[in-house]
Design a protein around this nucleic acid. Structure first.
Lengths: 204, 204
DNA sequence: TTTACTTACTAAACAATGTTCAGTAAATTG
DNA sequence: CAATTTACTGAACATTGTTTAGTAAGTAAA
């Protein structure tokens, strides 16, 4: 039955078309400022069409959120081949920071905005985030097992590492570094310094 | 001229009435979900009245934002009398964390939301945040001068400390600890542990 | 007191938003 | 060819932030 499959494929393609357009506009304008109507206009369909593919704006946002995590995981996985665990951990952190610099709207959606999590209220667990967290935890456990960093409960230490980097980049993208009188360049440099300082503190 | 003064006073009182109502509703419902109409209804005035006291919703939000900083500074100042600089720094951090736990909506407004900063686009600097940052920096410089913690450029180190705690509480209030399979109580305990771990790492 | 003016406020409207629903035209099926 | 399903839309709805024209009371000057 080739027809049913073609229809299925076309449906998926249209879904992707909507998500891609939404992602682009969300990234440019931010979530609140992009209307369903403007997304519809971009793909040259009526607003009501979007509701045939997504329950509401939240569900569409969630799809974009997943897209963002795909991007982040791809970036972070680039350094998987590096042999030295400590250097690998450092590079993972740097990729994370770089991702935030290059896609601040995605980052905000993934780690600061509350909306995309509405989707998980039924499913109760944030699977997507969990995968990224585990990725980081493996990198840290590797360092710990080889005696390169301090000993700590792995999950807790992973949370601390994540928090530190997340804190820095969030304050940056959310414009709170205005409290520091720094240029944009200086702010970014400071954050990279922060990653190294943190790793030095964790070294045994 | 008593009349002019009374009018001035009454105007200020009404302004406060609006800000207080707005603060309560923002804190309960969140910024996006509270309408100007609902605020107006609470204070038993027409929506248009609010616009006599505030240019728009952003400016009202900013007033609430300032209120939040007043609250935070008050909480953090409670520990000013503690003699031991390291212990004082620890207590400041704990008060900061506690503030976030007790007023998550305020916290989000002050450190994650972009909107209240619109107000500063003309004034270019985030004065309110700067004061809080300086408060923390003094506490840290005190520790450093007495040789209790590692030597570092004070502003940078202050930023790192702030980032770490901000990162932890943000991930918590923004529900990203769902990636960790922890109860609410366990999450909070972990954050307090984090503060102590961080201070241990900074100790010389 | 009477007159002008200012202040404090509101009702009603505006444009834009997310969302729904009845209806339509085309594609598919029997 | 007829019946049914699919994919889509136009128009409406309720709600939002905001503006404007108008009103009624308070104040000041004659």
């Amino acid at each position: 039955m080739g027809i049913a499959e073609r229809k299925e494929r076309e449906k998926q393609e249209k879904r992707d078309l909507i998500v891609d357009a939404a992602a682009r506009i969300f990234a440019e304008e931010g979530y609140e400022r992009t209307s369903m109507r403007s997304i519809a206009e971009h793909i040259e369909y009526s607003p009501a069409t979007i509701y045939l593919y997504f329950k509401d704006k939240d569900e569409l946002l969630h799809a974009v959120h997943e897209l963002g995590f795909g991007l982040l995981m791809k970036e972070m996985s680039k350094v998987a081949a590096v042999a030295d665990p400590l250097e690998r951990l450092r590079l993972v952190a740097l990729e994370y920071v770089r991702f935030c610099f290059e896609h601040p709207q995605y980052y905000n959606l993934m780690f600061n905005s509350l909306e995309p999590l509405n989707y998980y209220e039924d499913h109760c667990n944030w699977d997507t985030g969990r995968k990224a967290f585990d990725f980081l935890q493996y990198a840290i456990e590797d360092c710990m097992q080889k005696g390169l960093i301090i000993e700590q409960e792995p999950k807790a230490l992973t949370f601390f590492c994540w928090s530190f980097v997340h804190g820095m980049v969030s304050l940056y993208t959310r414009c709170r570094l205005r409290a520091l009188d720094l240029s944009d360049e200086e702010s970014r440099a400071l954050i990279f310094t922060g990653v190294n300082t943190w790793l030095d503190l964790m070294k045994k």
